[in-house]
């Protein structure tokens, strides 16, 4: 883990990306004992339009709490890709929902993509867990926290009736990306 690792989740307001950011920050700071700060874009544009959530993870105390240059970015919609898939580090990674982002952002970073929302809908029957699929995918892609810590944090956040669904969603996202990375 680098001294300072920055991840951005972006998509449409209501897709649960702020929650995904909170879960990642909990995995890093509560379960793994690292330092983490989670923040979100918070404004009128967050209602339905593009929304983002950022997590900074570090082995030491985090001074500047906002992203400087992100190591990894997720974009679930075209609007969020246009607006937030910038400032990605050279050699960084960008994960896209291929059903919704047709015009790929260009830059000196590696792009991974799969139909994230459709995967949640088709494989699990619940579109609502697309954010957890995306979270599993981002953790697989970055190794920002361990697979186990991520799963533990997911399960600590969801109501008991939905534990199994979210566990599957997380594993699905994680494994999809591991395949893409082969």
């Amino acid at each position: 883990m680098a001294e300072r690792f920055e991840i951005r989740f972006s998509g449409a307001g209501g897709q649960g990306l702020i929650t995904a950011g909170i879960i990642l920050a909990e995995a890093a700071s509560i379960i793994e004992g690292k330092h983490a700060v989670q923040s979100q874009s918070y404004g009128p544009e967050a209602r339905g339009g593009a929304s983002k959530s950022e997590v900074i993870i570090s082995d030491g105390p985090i001074d500047y709490p906002k992203a400087t240059i992100v190591d990894a970015c997720l974009a679930m919609t075209q609007e969020s890709a246009d607006k937030y898939a910038n400032g990605i580090k050279e050699g960084g990674v960008l994960l896209l929902d291929s059903d919704f982002v047709k015009k790929e952002p260009q830059g000196d970073f590696k792009v991974y993509k799969f139909p994230i929302t459709r995967t949640a809908k088709d494989d699990l029957g619940r579109e609502i867990v697309a954010n957890v699929v995306a979270l599993g995918a981002m953790i697989a892609l970055t190794g920002a926290v361990s697979r186990e810590a991520g799963e533990k944090a997911v399960l600590a956040r969801v109501p008991e009736a939905f534990l199994e669904l979210n566990k599957k969603a997380y594993a699905l996202g994680y494994e999809k990306v591991k395949e893409l990375m082969k």
Binding site: I22, A25, S29, I30, H35, A36, V37, Q38, S39, Q40, Y42, I62, P65, K66
Partner: peptide, 10 residues
Amino acid sequence: DEIVGHSRER
């Protein structure tokens, strides 16, 4: 300010 008010930290 809003930044520390709304950021989450351990």
